[in-house]
């Protein structure tokens, strides 16, 4: 089976869908001729022509706004925000338009659209290349929000997102593009070729939206995580020697409620981890969901580990990033609590 990086898997998902369906078009800043600053669309213009994959003006609202019009026409646009940090000019188009088009027109118009964006930190990108804005999308009715944690899922989820008839926000943890980064920034990153989830089948397959996965089975506590934090939490569990069950949510909206409930009811303890800032982060929703569904099964208070409530710093990146030490420490607290 071919081994791919997450970048190659994402590129492959585009290629599979573009070959299969003429209505799939791909555009964004530097996306066409050059193939994207992270190279996720490299080769697509050459393969499918300029009208299927092209460069866009630097105008995120225009990129998403035109994509909505294309989706209403009947195309399946897949657009790239160069960084999730740049999505805000398009926020109105996403929230007020894409998300509500089906509802407000009673199905007269729909918006099968994918907005891809690299998310998260760990690359010394400072405050404008490191943010994790997922909660700004999960809060919006009508959107689906996806965060893959490995090449296999990235391809399967992106194909599922492109085939979905509703708008999907597709957040790609950029620190995972080239390997399963576990938070240890001093050690060279393991390439995806050495990881089982770097094995990516040829052709079309999907990872269904709305379904999480258990990455590591355990009995002592449940860790709810997604994206980069899945790998950091796995490493942290090894480090502190706690039999943690790591749940990779994969899709944040709609959320795999049954999987979360089953795991927390089994372990009786829950730790929620994300890289985004703490307050009003998606972790707050997860805590509420668990408290609601599993309160009488809990043996300790639910704990959150998240980015501090500051802008993403540059020099202090590794003090900001929720690394193995903080997550491991929190695991111990949950076990003691």
């Amino acid at each position: 089976m071919p081994r791919m990086t997450m970048i190659e898997a994402i590129r492959d998902a585009h290629g599979v869908k573009m070959a299969e369906d003429d209505n799939v078009v791909v555009f964004g800043e530097d996306v066409g001729y050059f193939g994207g600053v992270f190279r996720c669309t490299a080769g697509l213009q050459e393969r499918f022509g300029k009208s299927r994959c092209f460069d866009a003006p630097i105008n995120e609202s225009g990129i998403v706004g035109t994509a909505i019009g294309m989706a209403a026409f009947g195309l399946r646009p897949v657009v790239e925000m160069q960084f999730a940090d740049y999505v805000y000019p398009a926020y109105d188009q996403i929230v007020s338009e894409a998300a509500r088009l089906r509802y407000r027109s009673a199905g007269d118009f729909t918006c099968p659209l994918v907005v891809r964006m690299p998310t998260g930190g760990g690359i010394f990108g400072g405050q404008t290349h490191s943010q994790s804005p997922e909660a700004l999308f999960t809060h919006v009715s009508g959107l689906k929000t996806v965060v893959p944690s490995n090449p296999y899922d990235a391809k399967g989820l992106l194909i599922a997102a492109i085939e979905d008839n509703d708008p999907v926000i597709f957040l790609e943890p950029k620190r995972l593009y080239n390997g399963p980064f576990d938070g240890d920034h001093d050690k060279p990153v393991t390439p995806w070729s050495k990881h089982p989830l770097g094995e990516v089948p040829d052709g079309r397959y999907i990872v269904p939206l709305g379904k999480g996965a258990i990455r590591r089975e355990g009995a002592a506590l449940t860790v709810l995580a997604y994206g980069t934090m899945v790998h950091v939490a796995e490493a942290a569990a090894e480090m502190v020697g706690i039999d943690a069950e790591i749940v990779d949510l994969r899709t944040l909206m709609p959320l795999d409620l049954d999987l979360i409930e089953a795991s927390v009811k089994k372990t009786g303890r829950c730790l929620v981890v994300h890289e985004a800032t703490l307050t009003s982060g998606f972790g707050a929703e997860l805590v509420a969901v668990v408290a609601d569904a599993c309160f009488y099964h809990l043996e300790a208070p639910i704990v959150r580990v998240a980015g501090w409530d500051t802008p993403y710093p540059h020099a202090q990146e590794w003090d900001y990033f929720p690394g193995q030490a903080r997550i491991g420490g929190a695991m111990k607290r949950v076990m003691e609590g």
């Binding site: 009208s51 035109t66 019009g69 209403a72």
Partner: peptide, 18 residues
């Protein structure tokens, strides 16, 4: 909301051209 449809109309036209 105001003006959002203006750029969507352009996108629809681009789709027709595509």
């Amino acid at each position: 909301n105001l003006a959002t449809q203006f750029v969507q109309g352009v996108g629809w036209a681009m789709a027709s051209a595509i």
